[in-house]
């Protein structure tokens, strides 16, 4: 098995879930649990594809996917933040809406071919003997996703806005008392999460497969939710988690292709079991990994 090709394949396979999970992590950091990732991803997948096909530009497709993911997520934001609906139920509803909507929009785009997103050949680095092919000859979105990981990490750790976001997620009542606009912060986080999920979906329809087919994200949004937990709400953890989850699939398929008999089901469930174990370890240490206000509605009653 060639490790160079393997790593390169894992990076492509993991990018959609990396993007979606990163967005969802920011949402959860602000104290909101949006279970509608799958719905936003599939909407991003169809909108990204449609825009890329009609404009001829894959990058415009990604931009459109981000916008449509964000718009859809704001429907969730409006319901949960202004009308104080239950986040779990609203998120599930968002998934239903996204799946239905995308299938209706996409019915004209079945069987079409998308414009290809070219590989970004980085001079010098791309010519390195092993690492060049492994790490430095991908398309631009792979690097965008990695850059976003770094940006989110820095944002949460070093900026004042990041601090406010975390404060809102940990204790919305205190944050409100300190004068922070809880609802606005959360809406911004939700929109960011929607945009990331939309781009993740577009990566499936524009690069990984590349075509539009109804229901094509096939549960990737739920995996993204698992990754956030696995990562215990840290940007670097999301990166590791996405590559681990993506890696298990790719390695399993490669082992089969290399003629090895593998217990497919055991391998496919292993990332989830590892996630539970990680979760137990975090909570056993006494540190609550999850933001304290996660999933609770906020209403300023004063």
């Amino acid at each position: 098995m060639d490790p160079v090709l393997l790593v390169a394949s894992i990076m492509v396979s993991a990018t959609p879930i990396l993007l979606a999970a990163l967005g969802e992590m920011v949402v959860e950091k602000s104290g909101v649990l949006n279970l509608g990732v799958e719905g936003m991803m599939i909407t991003g997948a169809v909108m990204g594809f449609a825009i890329a096909v009609s404009s001829g530009s894959p990058l415009l497709g990604f931009a459109g996917a981000a916008v449509s993911g964000a718009v859809l997520s704001l429907a969730f934001g409006f319901l949960t933040q202004y009308l104080l609906s239950n986040q779990v139920a609203t998120g599930l509803g968002l998934t239903l809406v996204g799946l239905g909507l995308s299938a209706l929009i996409g019915s004209n785009y079945e069987g079409q071919r998308a414009p290809a997103l070219g590989k970004l050949d980085i001079p010098l680095l791309g010519d390195l003997p092993v690492l060049g092919r492994m790490l430095f000859s991908h398309d631009i979105m792979v690097y965008v996703s990695l850059a976003l990981v770094a940006a989110v990490w820095a944002f949460l750790k070093f900026t004042r806005a990041g601090l406010i976001l975390r404060a809102v997620g940990e204790d919305h009542a205190s944050a409100h008392a300190l004068g922070y606009k809880v609802v606005r912060v959360r809406l911004a986080a939700i929109a960011f999460g929607g945009a990331c999920a939309g781009m993740g979906g577009a990566y499936v329809s524009l690069v990984r497969v590349p075509q539009w087919t109804e229901g094509m994200t096939a549960g990737a949004g739920w995996i993204a939710l698992a990754i956030v937990v696995f990562a215990s709400w840290r940007a670097l953890g999301v990166l590791i988690g996405a590559y681990l989850f993506g890696g298990v699939t790719v390695i399993q398929l490669n082992l089969q292709a290399a003629g090895t008999t593998v217990p497919v089901e055991l391998l496919s469930m292993s990332p989830y079991l590892i996630t539970i174990i990680v979760l137990v370890i975090i909570s056993a240490r006494g540190a609550q990994g999850a933001p304290a206000s996660l999933g609770r509605s906020f209403h300023a009653s004063s």
Binding site: L6, V209, M216, A218, A220, T249
Partner: peptide
């Protein structure tokens, strides 16, 4: 499952 089929194709090519 288009995504999985795509990954499997890639895995076969890689092998």
């Amino acid at each position: 499952d288009p995504a999985k089929e795509a990954d499997a194709t890639q895995a076969l090519l890689d092998q």
